[in-house]
Design a binder for these strands. Sequence first.
DNA 1: AGTGAAACAGTGCTGGC
DNA 2: GCCAGCACTGTTTCACT
Lengths: 147, 147
Amino acid sequence: MDLDELDWRILDLLQQDGRMTFTELARRVNLSAPATTERVRRLEQLGVITGYAAVVDPQLLGLPIQAIVRVRVRSLDSPRFRERLLALPSVCDADHVTGDDCWLLRVRCKSMAELEQLVDNAQQYGETTTSLVFSSHVRNRPVSSPG
Amino acid sequence: MDLDELDWRILDLLQQDGRMTFTELARRVNLSAPATTERVRRLEQLGVITGYAAVVDPQLLGLPIQAIVRVRVRSLDSPRFRERLLALPSVCDADHVTGDDCWLLRVRCKSMAELEQLVDNAQQYGETTTSLVFSSHVRNRPVSSPG
DNA sequence: AGTGAAACAGTGCTGGC
DNA sequence: GCCAGCACTGTTTCACT
């Protein structure tokens, strides 16, 4: 994967504003619109850009509770855990990690009652540790050029 | 905040494809383009849609290591921790949470050496617990209508 | 790889319901 | 709150470098 400085500038701009028009993008990187478009297509095809997404505010959408649930899933229960728990709409992130707590879930709920239900559900598969999120200070920081 | 079914469909579609044109969006929700555009503008103005972002693959961008670092920050060190650590480009997510480990960081690094350096850095502010991420099974699941 | 011009598609505005 | 028509802007293709 060799990306030049121009590719990185394009990635930077599109991570900040995924709806920027290619003509605007072209202006910012001092290139013609077709050349810029072709670079973006190439980045998409290489899999560097995997998609574009609108970023929404869960608070305003009726999900004021955010929590991190760590689950020490018993190995025998792992398949069922993956099928049933990771499919829940409340589960925003799910990472399989090293260490005693082998799963880390970021969940969003409309109420504490809903969170309680989810944690109770998770308890079937192993011990859980739940932390409520006070505030998120960094969220999905754009990946930037190492140079 | 009262959103009707149409608003939710628009949110759903834009979370999946943030670059979808308003004409295409209009087709999908069976509305005229101007009406659809106006609804999107309204969602943006209400703060429901906070932005749009290109989603990139950190692996392909030279960041193969992903880890969750829990930090039990001593209260006296908190201001410096916030200023110095949360500003690092490696820190993708940073949440202030309840429980013993009061901060949860998701970091991405180009090498274990870099991760080691970051964790050493974090140790200045309190005890840390680091878990390497094997795999992310859910990432930024779109928020969907409760109904 | 990048450019410039022309055809085409999408956007934004205005007026009307 | 939605639609139709029009001017404007952005996108795509193609011949050329």
